[in-house]
Write a protein that binds this DNA or RNA. Structure first.
Lengths: 215, 215
DNA sequence: ATGTCTTTGTGAACGCGTGCACAAAGATGG
DNA sequence: CCATCTTTGTGCACGCGTTCACAAAGACAT
């Protein structure tokens, strides 16, 4: 039986082995003392906990460049997602296949959601259309929305929204880049080191970058 | 002089006002006691600290659907980014304008980087080409890379890489969606509440979702 | 001027997550 | 069957970030 120890996994993931064991313990006691974790069983349990074993039908609304890129993205299928439909408001697109899936007109949005039991919607429309699309998705029964449009969506309680801003990651890189340049200048002793400059590991999701910024 | 108080800002952002003030204090003492913060000056100071006042030339490599979507994305310019060039390995694309910028062939990659003083590169190529492109970018002087390809890039010390996995956000939504369904079942008293189920605010970057998952 | 009122800036306390360290558990060998 | 060795699971302590609470500072009225 192939096994891994928490030590091996922790080293590979670059985290503390105790934390890893403690995290695993929340899922139950799958390990065997003196041996480690059964790889196959562990993968199954984690997959199940994360929902990877379920089939999640999703719809993508707005089939521009970004929508098409998402439709073509291979990472979805392997993580339990199935693109149930592509939806766009442009009649010229209707029927045309993108990534092997025919685009459907947004008039059918509600019917598509209900027929496929979709609870997760992806919005890749221009900013102006996003809220309207969102409202229709929610009204049709969608309870989780992934928003790529540069707008803050308002939704009723019980509906989850996650906003993906493609420029934020660039922003973070630029911030670190500026920091690098600043470090060199500071090495000459001219610029006083600010408290914010105290650490720059650059490992976490957002490093030590401030969270608030102007529009 | 238009001003805002930390209380107003905190309420708008949904955070604690003391934390907001403490964060601002790291940038210096811009506030006036009894009055608040001068809006215009505050915006300028934060913009400067975040690097928004600088001009960051970037190149986008790999002009498929995703690369084109990025090139068209309006959020870049407003945040101080300037798309210096679009680069693709396909000779058929060379010269064709995307988002008003002519695509250039990847043979010229090094020259483009150096001529424009680019230090930030965006990789939107297929997975297979990503590492090779990355190596060339780094060799040409790029020190920050935003990677959209589903590969982990290896880079020398001093180079920052941020990986954007479009399916991770969906994953997180599905995780919460599953949790919602689980809550209902648990309400019948059958399933014991696990420690992991204790909180589900769903506000933070990744909520309370486990960080490790199988490929 | 002097007093009052508002809001900042920050020292100090609290709470939570991380990591240490070890007892418990099971495998393995003599 | 006992001893030894490995690795898990977890109580506990430490450290860091968040929040509280208040003194200091400035505006504004009288």
């Amino acid at each position: 039986m192939p096994t891994v120890s928490s030590e091996e996994l922790a080293a590979a993931a670059g985290v503390n082995s105790a934390k890893l064991r403690k995290d695993f313990s929340y899922l139950g006691s799958y390990g065997t003392r003196g041996v480690g974790y059964d790889v196959e069983y562990l993968v199954y349990q984690i997959s199940r906990e994360l929902g990877l074993t379920q089939d999640w039908p999703v719809v993508i609304v707005g089939i521009g460049n970004l929508g098409a890129a998402l439709a073509n993205y291979g990472g979805f299928a392997s993580r339990g997602f199935r693109v149930a439909a592509l939806i766009d408001a442009d009649p010229a697109l209707a029927g045309k296949p993108v990534a092997g899936i025919p685009v459907r007109h947004s008039d059918d949005l509600e019917k598509i959601i209900q027929d496929n039991g979709v609870s997760i919607g992806v919005i890749a429309t221009p900013a102006g259309a996003a809220q309207q699309v969102c409202d229709r998705l929610v009204a049709a029964g969608v309870t989780s929305i992934l928003n790529f449009a540069p707008t803050v969506l308002s939704v009723p309680d019980g509906v989850d929204v996650r906003k993906v801003d493609l420029s934020i990651e660039l922003q973070i890189l630029a911030f670190h880049e500026q920091r690098k340049a600043g470090e060199e200048a500071a090495a000459d002793g001219a610029v006083p080191a600010t408290a914010a400059r105290k650490q720059s590991a650059g490992k976490g999701p957002d490093g030590d970058m401030p969270a608030v910024m102007p529009a």
